[in-house]
Design a binder for these strands. Structure first.
Length: 225
DNA sequence: TCAACGATTTTCT
DNA sequence: GAAAATCGTTGAG
C-alpha cells in the first residue's frame, strides 16, 4: 500500500482553482439527496480506486444524473431486474454495468434505498497513480485495437475522459466493484476533494442516449481557469 | 431461444 | 465522419 494513501490532503496545484484536496470520504448523507444535486456536487470531488496495491485518484470533471423509473434513459425505466437491482440499493454504493460488449461504467447510487437513481461518472482528471492508468489503458487493448498506431502516447488529461476509459484506467469492473460501499469501503471511494463554483461548471443535455435526449442532466467542469 | 440494442471507444478513410 | 469491435440485457415469439 503506498504510504501517501493515508494522507488527508493532496496537492492539485496544476489544476486551476484547486489547491488542496481533502482525502476524506464523502459521507452517506451526501448521496442521500436529489440526484441532480449530487451530480452537480460531485464535480471537483475525487474518485479513488485501490487495486493490486496501487491507488489511483482523479478529479471528477463530468457527471450525468439518471433519475429513476420515470426517466426513460435510466436503466431503472424497465423496473427492477437482476441487472438494475443495484440501483435500488442504499445511497453511496457503486452501480457498475457493462456496455457495448467491452466497456464498464461506474455510477454512485443516490437518494434513498428503494428509489432507483444514480450519477454516472463520465470523466476524471488524473491526479495520482498516472503510471498505472497509462499501463492499464495500453494493456487492456486487444487486436486490432493494439495496432502500432494505437500505441502512441495518450495525453494524461485523456486517460480517463470518458466513462469506459476511466474504468479501464482505474481498474474498475463489475465483478470487483458492483455494489461496493463508496463511503466505508476501501477498494473504491469518492473523497471530499474541493467543491467548485457554479461559474466553473457547465450544464448540458446527456449524451450517448436515445431517450429524453434534451433533459439537462450533464455537468462538466469548464477547462482552464 | 434468438435477435436487436446499448449511459462507448478506437481506428481508418 | 463512418464503422468496427463485442457481449450482457431485454423482450418478442
Amino acid at each position: 500500500m503506498p504510504r501517501d494513501n493515508t494522507s488527508r490532503v493532496e496537492s492539485a496545484a496544476s489544476l486551476p482553482g484547486t489547491r488542496r484536496l481533502s482525502l476524506q470520504a464523502l459521507p452517506r448523507r451526501f448521496y442521500a439527496r436529489d440526484t441532480e444535486l449530487v451530480a452537480r456536487d460531485l464535480i471537483g470531488r475525487v474518485l479513488e480506486c485501490t487495486r493490486d496495491g496501487v491507488t489511483c485518484r482523479g478529479l471528477i470533471s463530468e457527471t450525468e444524473a439518471y433519475l429513476g423509473e420515470h426517466d426513460p434513459a435510466c436503466h431503472a425505466a424497465v423496473g427492477r431486474t437482476a441487472r438494475t437491482a443495484g440501483l435500488y440499493g442504499p445511497p453511496g454504493t457503486a452501480y457498475v454495468y457493462f456496455i457495448y460488449g467491452m466497456h464498464w461504467c461506474v455510477n454512485a447510487v443516490t437518494r434513498a434505498e428503494g428509489l432507483p437513481s444514480a450519477v454516472l461518472i463520465r470523466g476524471v482528471l488524473p491526479l495520482h497513480g498516472v503510471e498505472a492508468m497509462r499501463r492499464r489503458r495500453v494493456e487492456g487493448r486487444t487486436p486490432p485495437l493494439a495496432s502500432a498506431r494505437s500505441s502512441r502516447v495518450v495525453a494524461d488529461q485523456a486517460l480517463a475522459d470518458g466513462p469506459g476509459k476511466l474504468c479501464r484506467a482505474f481498474g474498475i469492473d463489475g465483478p470487483t466493484h458492483h455494489g461496493v460501499d463508496l463511503v466505508r469501503g476501501t477498494a473504491l471511494r469518492i473523497l471530499r476533494g474541493a467543491p467548485v463554483d457554479d461559474a466553473r461548471v457547465m450544464v448540458t443535455p446527456r449524451i450517448g442516449i436515445s431517450k429524453a435526449v434534451d433533459w439537462p442532466l450533464r455537468w462538466v467542469l469548464r477547462p482552464g481557469q
